[in-house]
Amino acid sequence: SADYSSLTVVQLKDLLTKRNLSVGGLKNELVQRLIKDDEESKGE
């Protein structure tokens, strides 16, 4: 998976916004949300 932890919070929020995901929470939560979304989209 992508190394989201190396991105800035601003970059993470931009990715979340593009996916229509919540941008609330700490950086670690944003990273986990993106990883979870990646895993769910692979399952389709």
Rank of each mutant, 00 (worst) to 15 (best):
residue 42 K to H: 11
residue 29 E to S: 06
residue 11 Q to S: 05
residue 34 L to F: 01
residue 43 G to Y: 11
residue 36 K to W: 09
residue 1 S to Q: 12
residue 28 N to A: 14
residue 1 S to K: 13
residue 44 E to R: 14
residue 9 V to R: 06
residue 35 I to F: 06
residue 33 R to I: 04
residue 31 V to I: 14
residue 11 Q to V: 06
residue 21 L to T: 01
residue 10 V to S: 14
residue 4 Y to N: 00
residue 17 T to V: 10
residue 27 K to L: 07
residue 12 L to C: 03
residue 16 L to C: 12
residue 15 L to R: 04
residue 7 L to R: 03
residue 6 S to W: 07
residue 12 L to K: 00
residue 28 N to V: 09
residue 27 K to R: 10
residue 7 L to H: 04
residue 21 L to D: 01
residue 20 N to L: 07
residue 25 G to W: 03
residue 11 Q to N: 04
residue 18 K to P: 00
residue 10 V to T: 14
residue 24 G to N: 15
residue 41 S to A: 11
residue 29 E to C: 08
residue 39 E to H: 10
residue 31 V to K: 04
residue 22 S to A: 10
residue 12 L to T: 00
residue 26 L to G: 14
residue 17 T to L: 14
residue 32 Q to H: 08
residue 11 Q to A: 07
residue 14 D to K: 14
residue 13 K to P: 00
residue 43 G to H: 13
residue 35 I to G: 03
residue 21 L to W: 00
residue 10 V to M: 14
residue 1 S to H: 13
residue 26 L to D: 15
residue 28 N to W: 15
residue 2 A to Y: 14
residue 10 V to Q: 15
residue 22 S to C: 09
residue 1 S to N: 12
residue 39 E to F: 10
residue 16 L to P: 00
residue 44 E to Q: 13
residue 36 K to R: 12
residue 2 A to M: 14
residue 15 L to M: 08
residue 40 E to L: 12
residue 2 A to T: 13
residue 8 T to E: 05
residue 8 T to M: 04
residue 6 S to M: 11
residue 33 R to S: 03
residue 31 V to H: 02
residue 43 G to Q: 12
residue 29 E to L: 05
residue 37 D to P: 02
residue 15 L to A: 05
residue 28 N to T: 10
residue 28 N to K: 10
residue 12 L to V: 02
residue 18 K to Q: 11
residue 44 E to V: 13
residue 43 G to R: 14
residue 43 G to A: 12
residue 43 G to F: 11
residue 25 G to A: 03
residue 3 D to R: 14
residue 41 S to D: 08
residue 34 L to D: 01
residue 34 L to S: 00
residue 5 S to L: 10
residue 8 T to Q: 04
residue 44 E to D: 12
residue 39 E to G: 07
residue 2 A to F: 14
residue 38 D to V: 04
residue 13 K to S: 05
residue 25 G to Y: 02
residue 32 Q to Y: 07
residue 6 S to Y: 08
residue 38 D to F: 05
residue 41 S to G: 10
residue 9 V to P: 04
residue 44 E to C: 15
residue 24 G to W: 11
residue 10 V to Y: 08
residue 17 T to F: 11
residue 11 Q to E: 11
residue 35 I to A: 06
residue 16 L to T: 01
residue 1 S to I: 13
residue 12 L to I: 05
residue 41 S to P: 08
residue 25 G to C: 04
residue 15 L to K: 04
residue 44 E to Y: 14
residue 5 S to E: 12
residue 39 E to L: 14
residue 34 L to V: 02
residue 9 V to H: 06
residue 4 Y to G: 00
residue 23 V to C: 08
residue 17 T to P: 01
residue 2 A to H: 13
residue 2 A to D: 09
residue 11 Q to L: 05
residue 35 I to W: 06
residue 26 L to I: 08
residue 24 G to R: 15
residue 9 V to W: 06
residue 42 K to L: 11
residue 24 G to L: 15
residue 5 S to W: 15
residue 37 D to A: 11
residue 40 E to K: 13
residue 6 S to D: 08
residue 5 S to M: 13
residue 3 D to G: 09
residue 19 R to A: 02
residue 11 Q to H: 05
residue 35 I to Q: 08
residue 38 D to N: 04
residue 23 V to H: 06
residue 4 Y to M: 02
residue 26 L to M: 11
residue 30 L to N: 00
residue 43 G to C: 13
residue 27 K to P: 06
residue 27 K to Y: 07
residue 19 R to M: 02
residue 43 G to N: 12
residue 33 R to E: 02
residue 27 K to E: 04
residue 20 N to Q: 08
residue 33 R to M: 04
residue 32 Q to P: 01
residue 10 V to G: 12
residue 36 K to E: 10
residue 7 L to P: 00
residue 29 E to G: 03
residue 17 T to I: 12
residue 12 L to N: 00
residue 12 L to F: 00
residue 3 D to Q: 11
residue 18 K to H: 08
residue 33 R to T: 04
residue 9 V to K: 06
residue 31 V to G: 00
residue 6 S to V: 08
residue 38 D to P: 02
residue 38 D to Y: 04
residue 14 D to N: 12
residue 38 D to Q: 04
residue 36 K to G: 06
residue 14 D to V: 14
residue 25 G to I: 02
residue 20 N to P: 00
residue 21 L to Q: 03
residue 39 E to M: 13
residue 32 Q to K: 08
residue 17 T to N: 10
residue 29 E to K: 05
residue 8 T to K: 05
residue 36 K to V: 07
residue 39 E to T: 08
residue 9 V to A: 05
residue 14 D to Q: 14
residue 19 R to Y: 03
residue 28 N to Y: 12
residue 34 L to Y: 01
residue 28 N to H: 15
residue 38 D to W: 04
residue 16 L to I: 03
residue 43 G to W: 12
residue 35 I to K: 08
residue 38 D to K: 03
residue 3 D to K: 14
residue 34 L to E: 01
residue 2 A to I: 15
residue 4 Y to Q: 01
residue 6 S to I: 09
residue 1 S to R: 14
residue 21 L to R: 03
residue 36 K to Q: 11
residue 24 G to I: 15
residue 30 L to D: 01
residue 1 S to M: 13
residue 11 Q to P: 00
residue 26 L to Q: 11
residue 14 D to T: 12
residue 6 S to N: 12
residue 33 R to G: 02
residue 22 S to L: 06
residue 26 L to C: 09
residue 42 K to I: 09
residue 6 S to C: 09
residue 20 N to H: 10
residue 38 D to C: 05
residue 33 R to Y: 03
residue 17 T to W: 09
residue 24 G to Y: 14
residue 39 E to V: 09
residue 14 D to I: 15
residue 30 L to I: 04
residue 13 K to E: 06
residue 8 T to G: 05
residue 32 Q to T: 08
residue 19 R to L: 03
residue 42 K to E: 09
residue 14 D to F: 14
residue 44 E to T: 13
residue 23 V to D: 07
residue 16 L to K: 00
residue 11 Q to M: 07
residue 37 D to R: 05
residue 9 V to Y: 08
residue 4 Y to I: 02
residue 41 S to I: 10
residue 22 S to I: 06
residue 16 L to D: 00
residue 37 D to N: 12
residue 31 V to S: 03
residue 9 V to I: 13
residue 35 I to L: 12
residue 27 K to M: 06
residue 24 G to Q: 15
residue 22 S to N: 08
residue 18 K to D: 06
residue 10 V to A: 15
residue 18 K to N: 07
residue 5 S to Y: 15
residue 17 T to S: 13
residue 12 L to H: 00
residue 41 S to E: 08
residue 35 I to Y: 07
residue 13 K to R: 15
residue 41 S to W: 10
residue 30 L to M: 10
residue 29 E to F: 04
residue 25 G to S: 02
residue 4 Y to W: 03
residue 37 D to F: 12
residue 27 K to Q: 06
residue 28 N to F: 12
residue 38 D to T: 04
residue 1 S to F: 14
residue 24 G to C: 15
residue 12 L to Y: 00
residue 43 G to I: 13
residue 22 S to D: 10
residue 1 S to W: 14
residue 34 L to G: 00
residue 34 L to R: 00
residue 36 K to A: 11
residue 16 L to F: 01
residue 13 K to A: 06
residue 25 G to R: 02
residue 3 D to E: 09
